[in-house]
Design a binder for these strands. Structure first.
Ligand SMILES: Nc1ncnc2c1ncn2[C@H]1C[C@H](O)[C@@H](COP(=O)(O)OP(=O)(O)OP(=O)(O)O)O1
Ligand SMILES: Nc1ncnc2c1ncn2[C@H]1C[C@H](O)[C@@H](COP(=O)(O)OP(=O)(O)OP(=O)(O)O)O1
Ligand SMILES: [Mg+2]
Ligand SMILES: [Mg+2]
Ligand SMILES: [Mg+2]
Ligand SMILES: [Mg+2]
Lengths: 614, 614
DNA sequence: GATCACACA
DNA sequence: TACTTGTGTGATC
DNA sequence: ATTCACAAC
DNA sequence: TACTGTTGTGAAT
């Protein structure tokens, strides 16, 4: 053939080869308590006192269901419709109401609009269910729960590690700034990157109008008619990103990239060796980035990644902010922050928490008794770690080696025709196969994703008989998954491979035949031999089952010694599971069970917690 | 990474895997006289008489330079600016002037506009140069030239083959019609396929407004504000194209695809075996296509591919037209057609010919004496074949086996930054490598193509030390070519590989060492051991050199016996070359030089002649 | 093991 | 005309 | 062997 | 915001 043609218009190519920079998005730290023991002077009492001072009698300040309950309002829907990224830097001064109104008017009646309404209703329902549960427990005595929670707080606080200077660096309006390099005239004009269909970012001029990431371009031009839209050019961003990373490497060869435009650095060693302050080191980093790329970056410095990330946003753009490695300062600073600021808490969770009157971090402490009863242990711990300002300070660039999935998905104008759907699937199969082969990976689980014309999303997965990365096989299995759904009208189709294994990996008997398999480039063993902790899945007695013997009234966690009431059976089990969680196990049990730190070091947790309330 | 993102907006994916349908565009038949001898009754006299009757004394009707000369006018520029596809079906009734005016106003001052102005100036200059040459010869005696030309006409006419029924089938508004399958509501509305940047086609409703292929979408919406634009979906078109081809195969298993939406069929055999008329067979084909795809096609039936193609446009859309296999009918029909109708004669050649007062095919005969002196032999023959309505009737689907190049090119927003240019090049190298490997090809010549921000196009080629399809090697050589041009600001970059060879081909000494090298999945030795033929370049006496012996006054072509004057040295050489042309050689010399028709049959010519005047 | 909703760049 | 793409995570069944 | 302009879908 | 992508051909150097 050769009818080959690309719709030149809006966007430009797809970003096919991502290998370069891990997406790994946020650093929410799903693990808790993974720091090496810090000092532990302050106790729970401090916490209680501090809060009592500031807010009167906390215990009696129980949530009022009437005030709390958030009905499914037009307002909540309009806010949702406005998109997920409304709290980014540069958007503080815009009139959110007006923006929401414009978006609402434009979107009226579209399939997207209706789907968003459906999803908004779903979270409203979820809130309603939560309120019902709240009604049932609101008169419970909170004291026993506070005892448990306060014990957790104490444990966590003791584990606090303030010894490291962690820095988070994030480029300002990254894609947009890169484009401005080639078109300097745009620097003073409102400009966004992407296409009329979707923007990936906007410069700060445009943000004044409410234009931002993940906003459709055609809505953006309604908000800002002078807006100039520049198409994506991923190769550019990858190229510039490389330059930035070269600077990072000077200050911390183990820097951890979180995306093309941001990374964590542990500058503790650099600070000591050069006898500089953390702030001056970071200032130097930003200066050097600017020299190499003519681009500005913002940075945050703090005792852990979570706080550093929050700090990098404080003086954005082209600024930096340090939160002292001091417990009181941290507690004081965090207290007043909106929970939404914390990575892992998005717009849905924010709304749910708001329904419990939890908006700022201090509210977490205030309502800890209620939250403890309504939330999953994991998520509750996640919250109190936020409240305490505790997070991971492990900085390690080990993304590719722990990659868990590879996928390809495409949106297109509606397709119903069977042959055309197959053709799309074939195309996507080939692309996925290419990516897998480029990364020298095979996979054993194939997931078909599809979005119907009404924007409803589904996934269908199948474990394959054997590991593969062959396009034909991928297509064949994908086709079976798709066939079960026909007929359908789709607007998106995707395939994702999970349960990955390196092509070089020795498999079964094959391992005896494999000869020197092309050592992967980054095998430099940077970290000292401190990796003596046991790997993840230690064979612990499965504590989710009730303890042997006759059912006692109270249960005590064999790991952290917390006591539970007999009625809290489910919660107790959840807690045990949590205590057996990798990081928890690591910090609390490691010393007892000396397990060989052999081959594969435990993969670091990569993202935040989601799905907050049971 | 994972910042992966596609500009969703306008277009959709690139059509990466073209393997499915050859592009091969037009069927202009650069070879002349490749038919097997037809009957030959009518002679040159017929031609002369017929023309003399219709137009008085032809010889004295010499071109008048004053009337002829076409100055570089605003008008010619506006016409050029309107684009290349203004003569397609459905566009006859539009007010071309108005459309041109709108386009002119919108494009004002853009880089594209200025580049088009430059190119228009170039053809104006070319015409001016041609006029100068015309001035020098306009008083020559035409008689001797007419003698030569008339001899050629006679030879050609004798070779005419009217024994075959060739049919050209072309889907109506193909991409647009496919999209209408999924969105039937669009059938009655003006609609185009592509994006705001570029359209690939438009339905017939939209064509009423002047909207057509290769028109930027944003201009189209100016011409037709209600226009609905649907993005390209190449997989769809490929899938539907397959269905259409299944129908073709029923009527001629050797059908020759020219693109996703058109093909030639030789239905002679089918007609005989089923005792049907060609028209009824074609009607049945179209009916069956409709049943299988719900799409309409148009068709032309004639004695050769050139005429069949022209005929398929006559009753488009959803119609067919047969030109009888009758010399007189053909001559009569062709006579009145604009030369622009013929594939191979585009807008530039049309304008150049117009400057010589050649607009309709009959004008070719009228001015044959002048044209013969001003044009290259090849092109002159091309023209008189058109005049005679003679073309190839060989229908053979052998595209992939004779593919001559594979390439990838991309347009993007301007890039100046060196690192970003390299990143783009790397991306394109990878894509080219993928395509080559998918087709199991390697290449030895790499051509870098680039378009500067002002739309000027350049190519830079290099013959590689060895055949390759490796991305790294491609990038490396491409980089060298690019480096020589830096610094530049580009809007497009492309790489194309030529001098291709199958991956399976044994190469040099390596063949002795290749031990079942990791049997690539497709090492199935499909082809038998017929590879005993001598390679392409048989050592023929190079006939471009002057004949041995003392220079005679007159030269006679050793192949076709035409005589040339001594002054026509250059022209004579050109003629000899032409006569030794593969197809010419094949049909005229083959019997003397019994060459085994083994393995690789001479690749059929695939396109038309261009570059008409010396 | 499979599906969903959420989060983030 | 146009509401993404790639990846990870926990809950649930 | 290289570069350019033209053509077609 | 936005003027394509793939292939082939002949002429000229
Ligand atoms: N929703 C998204 N979809 C696709 N790409 C995105 C999305 N959000 C951001 N990106 C891309 C474009 C951004 O320039 C780049 C870095 O994101 P991010 O750091 O959050 O914003 P930013 O760098 O553009 O502005 P800033 O950091 O100054 O707020 O990632
Ligand atoms: N300039 C171009 N660039 C890219 N793709 C094109 C171009 N021209 C045509 N195409 C694609 C889209 C067309 O639907 C398809 C077939 O082309 P063609 O047969 O010439 O027109 P068409 O089928 O759209 O209308 P019709 O044949 O009814 O005049 O090839
Ligand atoms: Mg950023
Ligand atoms: Mg970022
Ligand atoms: Mg067509
Ligand atoms: Mg066609």
């Amino acid at each position: 053939m050769s009818d080959a043609f690309v719709e030149s218009d809006a966007e430009g190519d797809f970003q096919e080869d991502i290998t370069d920079s891990p997406v790994v998005a946020e650093t929410g730290e799903a693990d808790f308590l993974d720091e090496e023991e810090g000092e532990h002077d302050n106790l729970l009492q401090d916490l209680q006192e501090a809060n009592a001072l500031q807010r009167g009698n906390v215990e009696s300040n129980a949530v009022d269901a009437r005030k709390v309950q958030q009905p499914e309002t037009i307002d909540s829907f309009k806010t949702r419709l406005a998109g997920p990224s409304t709290h980014k830097a540069g958007l503080d001064k815009v009139d959110k109401r007006k923006v929401e109104e414009v978006i609402y008017e434009i979107s009226q009646g579209s399939a997207f609009f209706e789907n968003e309404r459906r999803r908004d209703k779903a979270t409203s329902d979820r809130i309603a269910a939560l309120m019902e549960r709240y009604e049932k427990i609101k008169n419970n005595d909170l004291t026993p729960h506070h005892v448990v929670v306060d014990a957790m707080l104490e444990r966590l606080d003791r584990s606090r590690d303030l010894s490291q200077y962690i820095c988070h660096i994030d480029m300002d309006a990254f894609y947009a700034s890169v484009e401005e390099l080639d078109r300097p005239d745009l620097k003073t004009k409102p400009m966004a990157v992407g296409g009329m269909g979707m923007l990936t970012t906007a410069n700060y001029e445009a943000r004044k109008y409410g234009v931002r990431s993940a906003m459709p371009g055609y809505i953006a031009v309604k908000l800002c008619p002078q807006l100039i839209i520049v198409p994506n050019n991923f190769e550019k961003y990858i190229a510039i990103s490389k330059k930035v990373r070269e600077v990072f490497a000077i200050y911390d060869p183990n820097f951890q990239s979180m995306s093309l435009d941001e990374a964590y650095l542990n500058i503790t060693e650099y600070v000591e060796q050069h006898e500089m302050t953390p702030a001056s080191v970071v200032s130097e980093i930003r200066q050097r980035i600017f020299e190499q790329t003519k681009l500005t970056a913002s940075a945050g410095i703090a005792a852990n990644k979570m706080l550093a990330k929050i700090c990098s946003d404080v003086n954005k753009p082209n600024g930096q902010f340090q939160l002292p490695n001091d417990r009181a300062a941290i507690m004081e600073y965090v207290r007043g922050l909106s929970v939404r600021k914390f990575p892992g808490i998005g717009r849905v969770t924010e709304r749910v928490m708001e329904s419990l009157n939890v908006k700022k971090c201090e509210d977490i402490y205030t309502h800890r008794g209620i939250l403890y009863q309504l939330m999953t242990e994991v998520h509750f711990v996640f919250l109190i770690r936020i409240y305490l300002g505790i997070g991971s300070n492990e900085v390690a660039d080990d993304y590719e080696s722990h990659r868990k999935s590879v996928g390809v998905e495409r949106t297109f104008s509606n397709i119903s025709d069977r042959a055309s759907l197959y053709a799309k699937l074939d195309d996507i199969s080939k692309k996925l196969s290419e990516h897998l082969r480029a990364k020298e990976l095979k996979g054993k689980t194939l997931t078909l994703k599809f979005k119907k014309s009404n924007f409803e999303v589904y996934t269908r997965a199948k474990t394959l008989p054997k590991y593969t990365n062959a396009a034909a096989e991928i297509f064949e299995h994908g086709q079976r998954l798709l066939d079960a759904e026909l007929p359908v009208t789709l607007r998106l189709m995707g395939l994702r491979m999970t349960t990955l294994r390196s092509t070089h990996a020795n498999e079964g008997l094959m391992r005896f035949f494999s000869i020197a398999p092309n050592a992967s480039p980054n095998t430099s063993p940077v970290q000292p031999a401190q990796s003596t902790q046991p790997p993840q899945s230690v064979s612990f007695p499965t504590t989710t089952a009730p303890l042997p013997g006759s059912p006692p009234q109270d249960y005590t966690c064999p790991i952290c010694s917390v006591t539970f009431h007999s009625k809290d059976n489910h919660q107790f089990n959840a807690h045990i599971d949590l205590c057996l969680n990798r990081t928890e196990v690591k910090s609390l049990v490691a010393d007892e069970r000396k397990r060989k730190p052999i081959d594969s070091p435990a993969p670091p947790p990569q993202r935040s917690i989601t799905s907050f309330f049971k």
